[in-house]
Design a protein around this nucleic acid. Structure first.
Lengths: 248, 248
DNA sequence: TCTGTCCATTGACTGACGTCAAGTATAGCA
DNA sequence: TGCTATACTTGACGTCAGTCAATGGACAGA
């Protein structure tokens, strides 16, 4: 590495988490201003993938975690039989690959849902750094823990809820995540196809389609293709809680 | 704490991971002999819970992770509506509470399925220690990552597989976990009730019951209450893969 | 030994969602 | 601009597993 860079001089190749608009969502949020450049030292920024391209798949040796910088990513497990289970959708600021830290190869396949840029964190260096920055280590634990919780929530959704409840929950989840990224909470464009939604929620595409139109007829949403407008958020929340209400 | 203990003298209260038979499954497996006592310094060993007792629930402030020493533990999420989703079963050597590291309170409820003893690792001290022992940190990442994968597998099972496939998968999972603990892989006693199995697998109790008897009639297993004998492991494996085969 | 409680099993019926099939919109591309 | 592939929608029908209901064991306590 011929990187004879002067103190604090920013090389064109060097990442600038300092200037990244996602620094309050992504790993930098756990790091003090002073230490931020230590993260910048290890990250490889700005790799770009076109729609449909794989960032990694289950045959790729595990090397790095990736933060989504722009665009969005779908992760899925593909079995020997070719059967696919979508395990998550990742938006800017979210970290992909945490499920792969226990093996030699990635535990899932990550695919760009649109033109997407990601920042790569080589795992060895990241672990080294988290060993030195307790706050960052703590944040990694938090992220992984959150991922476990998300997955448990998904399991719950899959095993207990109806098609309508699942889809309402997904729409609300997306809404809140868009909102945290300073985008409209009620008016957004789904990054994924109906097929991916169906697979993720354990439904048939046809069922997803039907529920969308049912919601539309009820005036809860307006949907044309991937463009979605939530017209009645409370109604959606009602749908997700309907089940709980019956029981209580 | 009047613990004026002499150098290296073992207090009766002090844990002895050194002597624990699970040291090759539990956290100690990631620690060199020399450093083991640093783990022993922070662990509170040997708390005992009777069948049905809560180790913690969702209203308990998050403080520690727990390693199962003997017995077994069930974790579940309970919604406002009182609805329950079992998220996992934990056997000796396994770590409970990893899903709770992102909040103030535990993210689930942990209940002893039988008379169970656990070792408590206060999270603050554990994080401090993992900051100092890279191998231990690495192992924590591995464990959490594995937990994410397990949960993804569960999601897959719930969304794609039939009742028979789910139950076969659970039996095989238990079998391999018993086996790793030097117990019979084909002859064991289920620590959980049919109800828990049903909830975990997203089925009704009646369905679980029916599948058990169906398997029994087919000569694949022998089951009387919680006592189970796997008569034909290959057949069980066939059942779990049947789905994949159709597709391929 | 009796009794209550909990757990497991079995049967009959029902319904939500999957499958199959056809048709319609949309997007990418020459 | 038109072509093709892909994505989405809609309808008809079948099925797996849920629900309801009854019964059978196992175990604890009186």
């Amino acid at each position: 590495m011929a990187q004879a860079i002067h103190l604090h001089q920013v090389s064109p190749l060097k990442a600038s988490c300092h200037q990244c608009s996602l620094s309050n969502l992504c790993l930098p949020l756990a790091i003090e201003e002073n230490d931020l450049e230590r993260l910048e030292d290890i990250v490889q920024q700005g790799k770009i993938y076109n729609r449909g391209e794989h960032i990694f798949d289950q045959s790729t040796p595990f090397k790095s975690c990736f933060a989504v910088k722009s665009g969005s990513v779908k992760t899925s497990i593909i079995t020997e039989g070719g059967d696919e289970q979508v395990t998550g959708f990742f938006m800017p600021g979210e970290l992909v690959g945490l499920d792969s830290m226990s093996g030699d190869h990635y535990a899932c396949t990550a695919k760009a849902l649109e033109r997407t840029s990601v920042c790569e964190f080589p795992i060895e260096k990241l672990e080294e750094l988290t060993g030195k920055l307790p706050e960052l280590q703590h944040h990694m634990y938090r992220l992984m823990s959150q991922e476990i919780q998300n997955s448990h929530q998904l399991a719950m959704l899959l095993s207990k809820n109806t098609a309508e409840e699942r889809i309402a929950a997904l729409l609300l989840s997306l809404s809140s995540r868009f909102s945290r990224r300073r985008m409209s909470a009620t008016n957004f464009s789904l990054p994924m196809a109906r097929n991916d939604i169906a697979n993720f929620l354990g439904l048939a595409v046809e069922t997803v389609s039907r529920v969308f139109t049912r919601f539309q007829n009820q005036g809860i949403i307006r949907a044309r293709g991937r463009e979605v407008e939530l017209l009645d958020v409370e109604a959606l929340q009602m749908v997700t809680r309907e089940f709980a209400k019956q029981g209580g």
